[in-house]
Design a protein around this nucleic acid. Structure first.
Length: 316
DNA sequence: CGCGATTCCTGGTCGC
DNA sequence: TGCGACCAGGAATCGC
């Protein structure tokens, strides 16, 4: 389940390989991965073929590649999406949905597993692989950010596209490790909403990049029950929750993200290690690391919520 | 207007 | 052993 750390691993992996590359061709193996593309502005293939990629940017779980046309290729991994960089001639993945054929890529910026060892220098496959087809690729127009800051995290890249964001991403809030994230707006939003804290964390409009795994982990770290009304949080509790979110996202990022199986991998097909560091997610039936109480898994919002019934109780 | 339920989708797993 | 039911969940959309 790719969340912010997993998407950032993908962004950092593709950035050096795609920046400056020319899209020489597009192969569509499954139209469902283009479900969110608005065809009224032109076909996906027409708007991508012949364009040059200028960088790789991420906000929350959304990734986009600005194009020299002024638009951007927006990538969302959904539940099971992967981006794999491959040398032409590699075996076809079972769940390959869309392939971009890239040209004029300097061999020295390719990941080691994509180094060409024959006459294919400068050519690279950008494979969008997605088993459950919840992810999507779209070509979108760019709009200015409301605060004038960068649209998202772009690594070492910058350009005229920096203070722009794809229109399909504009309604998503900044994520908590974005330098332009507004703490005051986050706290004000918590005070204004009339809903439970986990629902607010998963709703990407107040804060972005958080999914089911890191929501459960952060709520455990902050000692909060998932149903705690957002408006009931004290300033100290809200600050502690935000600090917990940042700490967990940064730690997961440092470990290459969370992988349970081959469903989430980096652009070279390798798994991250954060699954070993999870305190509550998937650990129902085992003792809480803080108090020893048996952890439980409850059904909430049609998904699992993992928590310690002693450390995490509704306070109001 | 905003919250919360529904929908999209596949493959692994479980029970009969 | 085989087959059907069920579960995992990000985010747009719809209904109330």
């Amino acid at each position: 389940m790719p969340e912010l750390p997993e998407v950032e691993v993908v962004r950092a992996g593709v950035e050096p390989a795609v920046t400056g590359a020319l899209v020489a061709g597009v192969e569509i193996f499954d139209e469902r991965s283009l479900r969110r593309h608005d065809r009224r502005t032109g076909s996906f293939t027409e708007q991508l073929t012949g364009r040059r990629i200028l960088g790789a940017v991420r906000r929350g779980k959304f990734l986009w590649l600005p194009l020299d046309s002024g638009r951007a290729l927006v990538v969302h991994l959904g539940m099971s999406g992967q981006v794999l960089l491959r040398t032409p001639g590699s075996a076809i993945d079972r769940h390959l949905r869309i392939r971009l054929c890239l040209e004029s890529v300097s061999p020295q910026v390719l990941p080691p597993t994509a180094w060409p060892d024959d006459g294919a220098a400068g050519e690279l496959w950008f494979d969008f692989v997605d088993q459950r087809v919840f992810g999507s690729l779209v070509i979108d127009n760019m709009v200015p950010t409301t605060d004038g800051a960068a649209g998202g995290f772009a690594g070492s890249g910058a350009g005229p596209w920096s203070a722009l964001v794809p229109s399909q991403v504009a309604h998503i809030s900044r994520d908590p490790i974005d330098p332009a994230f507004s703490q005051s707006a986050f706290f004000a939003g918590l005070a204004r909403k009339k809903t439970g804290i986990k629902r607010a964390l998963l709703d990407q409009t107040l804060i972005s990049g958080i999914g089911n795994i890191y929501a459960d982990e952060a709520l455990f770290a902050a000692g909060l029950h998932y149903k705690t009304p957002t408006a009931s949080l004290s300033p100290a509790q809200a600050a502690e929750l935000l600090a917990a979110l940042r700490a967990i996202l940064q730690r997961a990022l440092g470990e290459g993200g969370t992988s349970f199986d081959s469903q989430y991998v980096n652009v070279n097909g390798q798994s991250g290690y954060f699954a070993h560091s999870l305190e509550v997610y998937g650990r129902q039936g085992t003792p809480c690391s803080r108090c020893g109480t048996t952890l439980v898994r409850e059904s909430f919002m049609n998904r699992g919520s993992h928590l310690c019934p002693s450390c995490q109780v509704v306070t109001s």
